[in-house]
Every structure is written in structure tokens, then in C-alpha cells.
Design a protein around this nucleic acid. Structure first.
Lengths: 339, 339
DNA sequence: TATTATTACCAAAGCGCTTTGAACGATCTG
DNA sequence: CAGATCGTTCAAAGCGCTTTGGTAATAATA
């Protein structure tokens, strides 16, 4: 059943039916009601492609996973995007997904743009000098970055959490508890978020007259395995740290394994703070001891990014939004004073 | 730049240009070359929506995450789908994503179907009596199920791994090692895959004259936390099992924590076998001791499902494919004979 | 009462592509 | 050399919707 048939059935013109369904004012109240009812009765749905062609708007948002499949994105991604899909659905937008392997991310953007297949994109996992920014600007494609590139960047829309502040405060907390040797097991530091976290860590140390020992830090994939390896390596150092800060719950899983294996006690022999994205399958609170975390829901961020992007698309002349979310520092059982 | 403009620039009709670009035979070789070159030079890309409207084919596949957000799907999903996106991209197909909250899954299918927005869907996480099957059949929507519904079901296309066989063999291995009390920490058993796994477990026990002790089994979310809780509960039973079989690596993470906490040794005091979906962030081999697993790459499954679905769409009259993948049982260090 | 607004509707054009059916010159057949 | 065949090309219709620019009928105004 298409518009024309529905219109014929109602003894109306396609014009009127279209307007009735799309809520235009120049339609009689009784007519609108009749149209709505019959449309529902026949289960009429406008053809998505026809509508898109006619309006020139795709009513779709693109998500492209980076081509190198950096692991820290993967397990977060489904949460990040699943919060967003509801927002989009409520506005009649679809989500298109590309998780590039063969094709690099920027080519996907070009395809998007030239084929008009999406009205905007969400950019994930920005790097320190990310070529995607320039590419998207050149394509005039509306986009929101989850994260930032550069510090006070304002020539694009972004939503980021305060990674710097989070790790600054985490480090400061440990220092206040008497820790002097604090390790850092970070994500890959060409990602801006990991870079910011290291800065927070280092500045907090400096502010107290301490210095980061490069041996006690690492930058790598956020896998369980890497968490285990790095924790073990660092805790085997001659003058081992009394506390560790970790970039994700997955790293923690490995770290706990290493700590247990070395017969150390978390919260006493070694304090642990990790960043918690709120992944549903790995709960910081239920660990034993429960884990002190810097917490920020990646799902909520995904939702909000979706809203911001829809805002930009709806009103292209508005100011580009920049949201920096504070991160909760939740003190639980895995941190304690130095013995 | 659109077709008409490109055609005018080339002094050709849109017809010829369209055919040249789409590889139709009735176009002169020199003309085709000229068209290809100029199209490339101008960066011409056909408008996706116009093409879709004209051909009546969406060139898109839909993925819908179940509305209840059952946790065991989430962390697997990005791997499952990211393998698939390359396959689709190679065939010029897009991936549409819906992770329902408000809207239930079947309504999304209806919208898909009536709006013509996708040519087919992939159905995830089938339940024992899954209403989605009937809904999709009624909608005449091509689809492939990842998993099965019912045993020898053949009125729809599916790809499944041999969950029954995997857990049968895992259980049998443990019995052969002398274990008599074997626990099972399973996923939610209204999912078919978890149901099959329990059957494999129970039948293997029966075949050796043993019986599953309901107290030693559980069915629940596949989270670290639940793995911890259930392991702890089961290992605290009066006559505790000497081995555990677990449905996922996330459960293992929690199980290992519980085992360590109870000062037991994996592979000696308690043997562990888990199913490993090949998630990149949680590696069975690198655990200590390395983990005995039933292994099957969910990413590979995602790729293959994509291929099957494209096959059905391309050739609707072909037989519906049914693929049952064997599961590797990889014996590593977490299993040993009973003391 | 004549004129202007307002309301409720419609015909037709157009979005950018594919595809049908036809045309044209060149080549081949008998 | 007439007629059939082939290889190229094109004009025009159509996919299903939105939207522009109307037109009647009714209500409000002077």
C-alpha cells in the first residue's frame, strides 16, 4: 500500500494525505483523523527511500568503527551506540554502521557524503592529530566527536569526559593516602583520551613534587591480558609501586589476576583505581574488594552525543556544542593508605 | 554532481552513463572508459536513495538488538557485526542498526518491511519459542538466524555452532579425567544456545550413569559478577564439584576471582572449561593457567551469516542454508585429573 | 454587497536514478 | 542489393514521496 493507493481509497489527493500524515496545519481536523485512522488500519508506512529522495534528507546517522579495530573501542561500542539508537528512533532516524577493514574510515565518509546516505556522523576515538576532522570539515558533513582533538578545540562539536581531571583526582587521592610510587596502566596514548589521562596523572604527581617513573607506566591495548602483563611487570620492579591507576575495567580484570597471583592484597599491599565506563558485564562495585573508580557512563555519553548531533542537523546555524562531562571519583574498597 | 550533469558534460544521455557505470554490456568500450574516467575525476557517486527508489532494493541489512538488552549479547555484538560489515561493504550493502528499548523488535521488522528500508535482517539470540520467526515469515522478509530455534528446524535459514556437542564433549572430557561432580554455570536458558548446552551437559552425564545436581548448575546473565557469585555458591556446597563448565569468558573472569578467593587452585582443586567466543579483549590462552575451552569465533560466524544472507537475497529461490559449525575443544591447563 | 482573508483541498512538478522500448547507422546474410 | 542482425545510443516513463503554486468554497471585513 502506497500513498497514491491510500489517497484513492480515501477519495483524497496524495498531497492532502501526505500533509495530514506529516502534521501540516493546512488540513481539516476531521480529514486528518480519517487519514490517520485509515493509514493505521492498512498499516501504511511511507517508503523510506522515496521520502529521502524527495526531502533530500537521509534521516540516517553514520557510525564508523576505525579500520584498525583498536580493541578498546570494540567492547565499549555496543553500549555507546545502543543508548543512541533509541534517541535516533524517537526522531525517525536510522543508524548506519560501518566497521571498516578494507576501506578506510575517511573513504566511508566520502561515500556517505557524495551518496547522501547520512545526514551526519559520529566520530569515535579521536587521535592526537586526527585526519578525520579535516576530512569531515571538507565534506561539510555534520558531525559530533566523542572525545576531543587538541585541548580547547572549538571548530567542531564534541562531547568528552574530563579524562584529565579524573586521573588528576585519582592520582591526588592516592597521594593523599600516602602513596608515593604510583603506577599507570593506560590505553594507547595516541588516543586523546589516554593522552589526557596521562597528563592528569603526571601533573598531579608534579603538583606534589613527585615524578612519574616511566618504568611504572605503560600504554597499550586495554585487554585483560595486557592488564595482567603490565601489572605483573610493574609489581615486580625493584621498588614497586604501592598503587596502580588503570584505564579500564578490562585491564582491572587482568590486574586483579596478577595481584592475586603474587599473593598481594588489593587495598592493602596495592591500591587500585580504574576508570569505569559502566559496562554492564563488568561491575566495579561487586568486585572484592569493591573497586575505587573514576566513573562515567559510556551509554549515557552515546545518548547525549546522539542528541547533540540531531541538534546540529536540525539547526545547522546554531553554535557547535562542546560538552565536558565531569567524572565521578567513587571511593570504594580497593584504595587504602600506605602501610 | 549528479547523473544528468555528468551525462551532459560527456555529451551522452543519462541512460548510457548509468549503464556504463553499472557494467551493462550494451555500451561501447571506449565510451565506458570515458565515462568511468570522468566519473572518477568528478568524484561522482550515485545518490543512494534515488537508486534505491528506482531499483526497489534497499541494499541494506538490518540488525536489531533485542529490546531487553540481555547482557550476553552486548559484548559479543560488536564482534559479530564488525566481521559482517566488510562482507556487506564488498557487495555494496549498508548495515542498519536498531537496539530497541522503546520499540520492540518485531515492530522494527514491520517498519523495515513496510518502509522497504532493508532487504533482509539478521536475527540474533533466538529463544526457545521465538515469536520473531513467525513475524519475519509473515513479513516475507529474508533473514538468517544466528542460532536455531528448535532442533531440526528447517523452515528458515540459520547458522549455529554445535553447542550441544561442545558441552557434551566438554563434560565427557571432565568425566574421563575422573570428575564425578561437575557444575554448570550457564547463560539464560530460554536462549536456545544455552538450552542446547545444558542438554549436552546432561546427556553426557547420563551416558556415564551420572546425574546433574540442580544445585550445581545455574542459568543467568553472563556477567563477571554472576560468574563470581555462582562459582562461589557452588564451590561452597557441602560436597562441592571438582569441575565447572562455564558459558562464557566473562563468567570465567568472575569464576577465577571466586576460586582464588577460596584459595583453591584451578586445574588441581577445580577444573574449568568455558566457552570462548574469541573476544579480543579476554584471551583464554593467556590466562594462568591457560584455559581449556570450547572455541568458536563469533566474528567468523558474523561474517558467514552475512554471506548466507546475501545469498538468500541474491537468489531467493535457492535452498535455505543451514550451517552447523563444529566447536573446537581446546585442552589447556585449567583441566586436570581429580586428585 | 463587494472585497479581502482564511480554510481545505488539489494538480503537477520534481527529487536522481533505472529501465523499457525504440531508433539509428553499420555490418552481415543470402 | 534488399532484408535481417548487431552494436550503440537515447527519449521518456516511472519508482513513491514532498512541495510549490494554485483554486474553490467559506468566513471575515468594510
Amino acid at each position: 500500500m502506497n500513498l497514491k493507493e491510500l489517497a484513492k481509497h480515501l477519495n483524497l489527493s496524495p498531497t492532502t494525505v501526505s500533509r495530514a500524515l506529516n502534521g501540516y496545519p493546512e488540513v481539516g481536523e476531521s480529514t486528518r483523523k480519517r487519514v490517520d485512522e485509515e493509514a493505521r488500519r492498512f498499516g501504511y508506512r511511507p517508503n523510506a527511500h522515496a521520502r529521502r529522495l524527495a526531502t533530500g534528507r537521509a534521516h540516517a546517522i553514520g557510525y564508523v568503527l576505525p579500520a584498525d579495530k583498536s580493541l578498546m573501542i570494540d567492547p565499549l561500542f555496543s553500549d555507546f551506540v545502543s543508548g543512541a539508537t533509541d534517541v535516533y528512533a524517537a526522531h525517525g532516524f536510522d543508524v548506519m554502521l560501518h566497521a571498516g577493514g578494507q576501506e578506510d574510515e575517511i573513504s566511508v565518509y566520502q561515500r556517505y557524503s557524495q551518496g547522501g546516505s547520512v545526514d551526519g556522523v559520529v566520530m569515535l576515538g579521536p587521535r592526537l592529530n586526527d585526519p578525520r576532522i579535516e576530512a569531515l570539515n571538507k565534506l561539510q558533513m555534520p558531525y559530533v566527536v566523542h572525545g576531543r582533538v587538541g585541548g580547547s578545540a572549538s571548530d567542531f562539536a564534541w562531547l568528552d569526559i574530563d579524562n584529565y581531571g579524573a586521573f588528576y583526582r585519582a592520582t591526588k587521592l592516592l597521594i593523599d593516602l600516602g602513596h608515593r610510587r604510583i603506577g599507570l596502566i593506560n590505553g594507547l596514548e595516541d588516543f586523546n583520551y589516554a593522552h589526557d589521562r596521562r597528563r592528569g596523572y603526571e601533573v598531579a604527581l608534579q603538583d606534589r613534587g613527585l615524578r612519574a617513573d616511566p618504568l611504572m607506566t605503560s600504554s597499550g591495548l586495554m585487554t585483560e591480558e595486557n592488564g595482567y602483563r603490565q601489572t605483573k611487570r610493574i609489581l615486580q620492579l625493584g621498588n614497586r609501586p604501592t598503587a596502580l591507576i588503570l584505564g579500564s575495567m578490562l585491564l582491572v580484570a587482568g590486574a586483579m589476576r596478577a595481584v592475586n597471583e603474587m599473593n598481594l592484597l588489593i587495598g592493602r599491599d596495592v591500591s587500585l583505581i580504574a576508570h569505569d565506563d559502566g559496562l554492564p558485564f563488568l561491575n566495579a562495585q561487586s568486585l572484592v574488594p569493591s573497586l575505587t573508580t573514576t566513573s562515567s557512563s559510556i551509554r549515557a555519553a552515546g545518548e547525549r552525543v546522539a542528541q547533540l548531533l540531531l541538534g546540529i542537523i536540525t539547526d545547522p546555524d546554531s553554535e557547535l556544542p562542546h560538552e565536558l562531562w565531569a567524572v565521578d571519583l567513587i571511593v570504594r574498597g580497593s584504595t587504602g593508605p600506605v602501610l
